[in-house]
Amino acid sequence: MKGPLTLLLLTISNLFMTFAWYGHLQFKKLAWFSKLGIVGVVLVSWGLAFFEYVFQVPANRLGYEGNGGPFSLFELKVIQEVITLTVFTLCAVFVFKTDKLGWNHVAGFALLVAAVYVIFRKW
């Protein structure tokens, strides 16, 4: 149960991270947001990033094998990277609608899957 919960918490964390890091580039379309200066934008992003940590820290603590979870540090990191790129891609294509998914993105994701295989393989 710790494994799936870790994945869920990391996914939620990455949703907040994506909006904190890249959402402000799209939020400028909102009237109230477009009037904010850089300091205001940074503060809004920090507010979103707070919730990223609210989910990521428990996910890592729960998932880490040193705390009784199923994942090593390397495994947690590669899982987090794959989730980050998956969430970002879905947001960019379907929420922000700024990019189209190309063959090079698919090829890159295939390489990430290969990275997951190599990291999780017990040699």
Score class of each variant (00 low, 15 high):
residue 118 V to P: 05
residue 67 N to M: 08
residue 52 E to K: 08
residue 44 V to W: 09
residue 50 F to P: 06
residue 90 L to E: 00
residue 106 V to G: 03
residue 63 G to N: 01
residue 71 F to D: 07
residue 73 L to S: 13
residue 69 G to S: 04
residue 74 F to L: 11
residue 91 C to L: 09
residue 109 F to A: 09
residue 118 V to I: 14
residue 43 L to C: 09
residue 116 V to E: 03
residue 43 L to T: 06
residue 101 L to T: 10
residue 82 V to E: 04
residue 64 Y to H: 15
residue 118 V to H: 04
residue 67 N to T: 07
residue 84 T to K: 12
residue 113 V to R: 00
residue 66 G to V: 08
residue 68 G to V: 03
residue 42 V to E: 09
residue 56 Q to V: 07
residue 47 G to L: 04
residue 106 V to W: 08
residue 75 E to D: 01
residue 81 E to H: 05
residue 88 F to K: 12
residue 56 Q to T: 06
residue 87 V to F: 07
residue 52 E to V: 08
residue 58 P to N: 12
residue 79 I to S: 02
residue 73 L to M: 12
residue 57 V to W: 08
residue 94 F to D: 06
residue 87 V to D: 00
residue 63 G to E: 01
residue 59 A to Q: 08
residue 56 Q to R: 13
residue 114 A to F: 12
residue 107 A to M: 10
residue 69 G to A: 02
residue 95 V to G: 06
residue 71 F to V: 06
residue 111 L to F: 10
residue 69 G to N: 02
residue 107 A to N: 04
residue 115 A to Y: 06
residue 62 L to V: 02
residue 71 F to Q: 04
residue 104 N to K: 15
residue 53 Y to R: 11
residue 107 A to D: 03
residue 83 I to P: 04
residue 84 T to M: 12
residue 68 G to Y: 05
residue 86 T to R: 01
residue 79 I to K: 00
residue 99 D to K: 14
residue 84 T to C: 11
residue 68 G to N: 03
residue 88 F to Q: 10
residue 43 L to Y: 03
residue 95 V to F: 15
residue 57 V to P: 00
residue 103 W to L: 14
residue 104 N to F: 14
residue 69 G to Q: 01
residue 61 R to E: 07
residue 98 T to R: 14
residue 67 N to P: 15
residue 82 V to T: 11
residue 78 V to Q: 05
residue 64 Y to F: 15
residue 69 G to E: 04
residue 86 T to S: 13
residue 78 V to A: 02
residue 51 F to Y: 05
residue 99 D to N: 12
residue 63 G to A: 02
residue 48 L to D: 07
residue 78 V to R: 00
residue 54 V to L: 14
residue 104 N to E: 13
residue 77 K to H: 13
residue 73 L to R: 09
residue 92 A to Q: 07
residue 80 Q to S: 11
residue 83 I to F: 01
residue 45 S to E: 08
residue 103 W to Q: 04
residue 77 K to V: 08
residue 67 N to F: 15
residue 87 V to S: 01
residue 106 V to F: 09
residue 43 L to S: 10
residue 89 T to W: 00
residue 49 A to E: 06
residue 61 R to F: 06
residue 75 E to T: 00
residue 45 S to T: 06
residue 43 L to Q: 13
residue 44 V to T: 13
residue 50 F to G: 10
residue 106 V to R: 04
residue 83 I to R: 00
residue 77 K to Y: 13
residue 115 A to Q: 07
residue 76 L to Q: 01
residue 58 P to T: 09
residue 84 T to E: 11
residue 72 S to C: 07
residue 112 L to V: 02
residue 47 G to D: 03
residue 67 N to K: 05
residue 119 I to T: 14
residue 51 F to A: 02
residue 65 E to Y: 05
residue 90 L to D: 01
residue 89 T to E: 05
residue 72 S to T: 15
residue 54 V to E: 04
residue 62 L to E: 00
residue 90 L to C: 10
residue 71 F to E: 07
residue 78 V to N: 00
residue 48 L to P: 03
residue 67 N to S: 08
residue 80 Q to K: 05
residue 65 E to W: 03
residue 117 Y to E: 10
residue 98 T to M: 09
